[in-house]
């Protein structure tokens, strides 16, 4: 394993985050604060509780997931797309490093950024609502696994994208709607039965449900199914990336 090379890519990507601090960290934190103000205080004051949990506290896991999913995808996709766009990818591809090591560097950095943002949002939420985490290890496990999985997904998008527009399409048109409709701001039990069934087709439901369980012990779907779903998504992403590097899809001609 070429640790120096992996760390070089990882550090390069992390440095980019520190250079663009406002965009990388401040922006998602401010957005989350706004969600708290609008949904937690303004609307939340009219909803007493959901499944016995104060509404403001109920939405915290969903908000963390919303940021983590979008940030993981955005960071990882941009991380690999930009060198492709600028042509600097030649340097990485001609270096004595394996594809696995390249992915480790890029995805590791993207997942770390998301993890930092997720943690900051949790800390910020603590100022607005009383937070409790009943199963901290499960919470950390879910958070880390989600960061890695969606960073891998972002990496795939970054390789697939042929322009900045395509780079934005998946986070804006797929990830964000799925997260909003995945129970970030409500419990599935609040929906009419038909919509409850339709929601089960949304993979993000399982992530938010499992993550919320680690906080309050309440879940819309079984924890085992949540784990199985994220594991399935993780393995699918790994297999796609393996295929990308095996064939050189959009990276090598």
């Amino acid at each position: 394993m070429n640790i120096t090379s992996i760390l070089a890519i990882y550090k390069f990507e992390m440095d980019r985050m520190w250079r663009t601090l406002a965009q990388s960290i401040a922006s998602p934190v401010i957005s989350t604060c706004l969600y708290f103000v609008v949904f937690g205080s303004a609307i939340g004051s009219r909803i007493e509780s959901v499944e016995g949990i104060e509404y403001g506290a109920f939405i915290v896991p969903g908000l963390v997931m919303l940021s983590v999913l979008t940030q993981s995808v955005s960071n990882a996709s941009f991380g690999i797309y930009f060198p492709r766009f600028s042509g600097t990818i030649y340097e990485v591809l001609s270096a004595p490093i394996s594809f696995f090591e390249i992915v480790l560097g890029y995805v590791g950095a993207a997942a770390t950024k998301s993890l930092i943002i997720g943690s900051i949002i949790l800390l910020t939420a603590n100022f607005f609502v009383p937070l409790e985490v009943q199963h901290p290890l499960t919470m950390i496990f879910f958070l880390v696994l989600t960061c890695i999985t969606f960073s891998l997904f972002g990496f795939i998008i970054g390789v697939w994208a042929d322009g900045f527009e395509q780079l934005q399409i998946i986070p804006l048109l797929i990830i964000t709607p799925l997260t909003f409709l995945g129970g970030s701001f409500y419990s599935l039990s609040m929906l009419p039965p038909i919509w409850q069934k339709i929601s089960m087709l949304n993979p993000v439901v399982y992530l938010i449900s499992g993550f919320r369980w680690s906080f309050y012990g309440h879940a819309d779907v079984s924890l085992t199914i949540s784990f199985a779903m994220i594991a399935f998504f993780l393995i699918t992403c790994i297999l796609i990336i393996r295929w990308i590097f095996k064939t050189g899809y959009r990276i090598k001609s």
Partner: peptide
């Protein structure tokens, strides 16, 4: 300097 150092590190050199 950072750009050149990055290239060296990519090749696994200290």
């Amino acid at each position: 300097r950072d750009a050149v150092s990055f290239s060296r590190a990519l090749f696994g050199k200290k």
